[in-house]
């Protein structure tokens, strides 16, 4: 395959500005807030993660709607491989999925065999979704075949688990590269493409997300296959999340406004969405003191 689609950064920014100028009010805002909740991959990826912390997170995910009946559940809990079984256990009886990062997350700086072993381990532990990272070093040095083969092999190792491919766009330097990596990941077997690990300063930016959504759209027109999208990192406010939904709707259409095809990788977004939902219901602005921190 030749990946030569170019992206003009200024034009892309202008489109983002236009999309973000949409004013989402009243019922359509409520609809969006609930949808966002259902699209959340609640994430904890710290070296200090403990079974206790993961259990707590899962509990929160499963009981978000206790106080506010009628709210949807989040889509998934995203953890490190050794926390998968704990999450799996805690989420029993809910439809919340367990997702695991793998392949030497976040840097990917290990060999292929170790990566595949890690993927198999996570899947064996019960991960229903795997978030892998691409080898940015190989990508940037032009070894596209290497990157593509690696994704294909990870996909194979995933078995029935869904594969989300993290491009770590903050390290890809240009939108042209973001587009190239998106096309490559989709061709190599990604079920989702994802912006970032959340472990470097630059995470999901609007122009990057738009570029990836456009790649998904072009891929759909070419192959008929619907690939999912997951922006991650830096999305902590409902307003921004709603703007991303507008971006999805106006780029890919209503079909993609489902947790099967769109996710937010975030941790603090859930509370903000809840606050907004309650504000919409009660009419007064909310304080974060009334929402649990984890």
């Amino acid at each position: 395959m030749i990946y030569n689609t170019t992206i003009d950064q200024v034009g892309c920014s202008e489109r983002v500005k236009r999309i973000f100028s949409r004013s989402i009010k009243k019922e359509s805002k409520m609809w969006a807030l609930k949808k966002i909740l259902s699209m959340l991959d609640l994430t904890t990826l710290e070296g200090s993660d403990s079974p206790g912390k993961v259990k707590q997170l899962c509990y929160k995910a499963a009981h978000l709607h206790d106080k506010h009946p009628g709210l949807p559940r989040v889509a998934a809990i995203c953890v490190y491989p050794n926390m998968v079984s704990i999450a799996q256990e805690s989420l029993k009886g809910t439809n919340i999925k367990t997702a695991s990062v793998a392949t030497g997350f976040p840097s990917g700086m290990t060999n292929l065999r170790a990566k595949l072993d890690e993927v198999k381990y996570a899947v064996n532990e019960g991960a229903e979704e795997v978030d892998m990272v691409i080898s940015r070093g190989h990508f940037l040095s032009g070894e596209l075949n290497y990157v593509s083969d690696e994704i294909a092999k990870v996909k194979e190792a995933c078995g029935n688990a869904k594969l989300k491919v993290i491009l770590e766009t903050g390290e890809l330097c240009t939108l042209d590269n973001v587009r190239k990596a998106s096309d490559l990941a989709m061709d190599s077997g990604a079920d989702f493409i994802k912006t970032s690990t959340g472990k470097i300063t630059e995470s999901a930016t609007p122009i990057v997300v738009l570029t990836m959504l456009e790649a998904i759209r072009d891929n759909y027109h070419l192959t008929g296959k619907k690939i999912g999208m997951k922006p991650a990192g830096g999305i902590s406010k409902s307003k921004l999340a709603i703007q991303y939904l507008v971006m999805v709707r106006e780029t890919l259409g209503n079909d993609w406004l489902t947790p099967d095809l769109f996710r937010f990788g975030a941790s603090s977004l859930a509370n903000d969405v809840l606050m907004q939902i309650i504000k919409q219901g009660q009419g007064n602005y909310q304080s974060s003191n009334y929402f649990s921190l984890d």
């Binding site: 949409r22 004013s23 989402i24 009010k25 009243k26 019922e27 359509s28 805002k29 609809w31 969006a32 949808k35 939904l245 709707r249 209503n254 406004l257 489902t258």
Partner: peptide, 14 residues
């Protein structure tokens, strides 16, 4: 006419 269903999202008047 701008009705939201579970699968389609329309913008309310602003």
């Amino acid at each position: 006419a701008k009705k939201n269903s579970s699968t389609t999202w329309q913008y309310s008047n602003a």
